[in-house]
């Protein structure tokens, strides 16, 4: 790729650490996110260890829906990273289209999640039913909020990158999206598979 594109990608300021400021901020942001989700996972793992009887509740989660959502998120991560590649190559319209695909992945994910929630609540598995379900709704709910937040950011960036504005942000929102993906990679076995 030519130098002018890269200069555009990197924004105005470069620095001693060799990371553009926006990306550095994103890493620090993710560090604080790690401590939120990681803290929750720590608590859940410890309590789950203490209470093997939660297994009888855990079998009622819908494995197929969780697996489908894993596929959706992994695929949306793929389109996010391809969007990043396209933005680096200066193909902004393609980057915007791929970000749109990732956004669509987020929509599908939320639809599946909504189906799961309504199905489970109808079956009587409400948050206050037991500790396992409290944790289930807490962790997946917090994760879903992060999905929504990522989608909002992605929509804004999609509109601007179409016009070639701030293409470096495609990478930043991608990093965030991959993090949300990784959280799901751990939530899926924790809440669905392990029983």
């Amino acid at each position: 790729m030519d130098d002018s594109t890269v200069a555009k990608l990197e924004g105005a300021n470069l620095e001693d650490l060799g990371i553009p400021t926006g990306r550095l901020a994103m890493w620090w942001f993710l560090a604080s996110e790690i401590s939120i989700f990681g803290g929750l996972v720590c608590i859940f793992v410890l309590l789950r260890w203490r209470h093997p009887e939660w297994a009888s509740e855990a079998v009622h989660t819908i494995n197929a829906a969780g697996a489908l959502n894993t596929v959706v998120l992994l695929t949306s991560s793929l389109s996010a990273v391809l969007a990043h590649q396209a933005a680096e190559d200066g193909r902004y319209r393609k980057a915007a289209r791929l970000l749109g695909a990732t956004f669509g992945g987020g929509v599908i994910f939320l639809c599946v999640k909504a189906y799961e929630y309504s199905h489970e609540i109808h079956a009587g598995f409400v948050p206050a039913r037991s500790m396992f379900w409290s944790f289930y709704y807490l962790m997946t709910g917090l994760h879903a909020l992060h999905v929504i937040g990522g989608m909002v950011a992605m929509f804004v960036i999609m509109l601007s990158v179409r016009k070639g504005l701030n293409p470096q942000r495609v990478e930043y929102v991608g990093i965030y999206w991959h993090f949300v993906d990784i959280v799901w990679i751990f939530l899926f076995p924790l809440l669905y598979l392990a029983s």
């Binding site: 996110e33 939120i36 803290g39 929750l40 608590i43």
Partner: peptide, 13 residues
């Protein structure tokens, strides 16, 4: 930044 995360989780709980 590194210490507040678990309490945010705790506050939500």
């Amino acid at each position: 930044m590194l210490s507040v995360g678990p309490l945010i989780a705790g506050a939500v709980m």
